[in-house]
Design a protein around this nucleic acid. Structure first.
Lengths: 107, 107
DNA sequence: TTGCTTCATCGTAATATTGCAATGTATAAT
DNA sequence: ATTATACATTGCAATATTACGATGAAGCAA
């Protein structure tokens, strides 16, 4: 027990949950907000901005990467992260679909 | 450690994370989908439909209730859950705003 | 009353997440 | 070559989540 029974659910349900899980931590929300607001591809001031330790930030970045939301490119010793526009739209669409498919009902 | 440092983030960031956390489990996604698809306010066939034990379903329903997404009314011994339309729209809007506030940038 | 159904709650075990110090790796600068 | 900078990775402790059996409360039916 303690283990999510993913096999009991549809692929779509699991995918939505997987996406939501990444957004389910304020640090990751903050990271996405910060990166998305940069004009240029500025790298990791994130540790200073967010205020968590460097390994923790690195870990969170990794979680976001796992669902394909981040592209990272090295520029010398600096790593430049930015948001994958295609994947961003895809996820936005997934959430929009979920929230639109609701009927008015009782109560 | 092990404790999310919510005080380091804005109210909006924490709120979004709190909402996402509820969607971050396929059972809760499935529950919301099921309830939203009922014409009438049909109650807990959820245990049969989802396939998790009754206490587990009850726990998940409680998580969804915590963010105000569920209204429950007793009808005799049956409890009738349905989605709070206002809150649903509010959350939809919160997510939409988050996903819309993104600039195109590099990479 | 007795028993049945519906749901919540408690207690507990298994697993996951969060956070960071220590350490490793790779590039850049001196 | 040495040092500094920018990350990633490892290992571990604290806490949270997930799941369910057992039990409790409240309504209904006999």
């Amino acid at each position: 027990m303690g283990l999510t029974k993913t096999h009991m659910f549809t692929d779509k349900q699991n995918e939505l949950a997987r996406i939501a899980k990444v957004l389910a931590h304020p640090a990751r929300v903050a990271i996405l907000e910060y990166i998305s607001k940069q004009d240029a591809c500025i790298c990791t001031d994130l540790v200073d901005i967010i205020g968590l330790a460097q390994p923790t930030i690195s870990q969170h970045l990794n979680e976001i990467k796992k669902i394909g939301l981040l592209n990272g490119t090295f520029e010398g010793k600096n790593l430049c992260y930015c948001i994958d526009q295609e994947r961003w739209k895809e996820i936005q669409e997934t959430l929009h679909t979920f929230f639109s498919n609701i009927n008015r009902n009782c109560c």
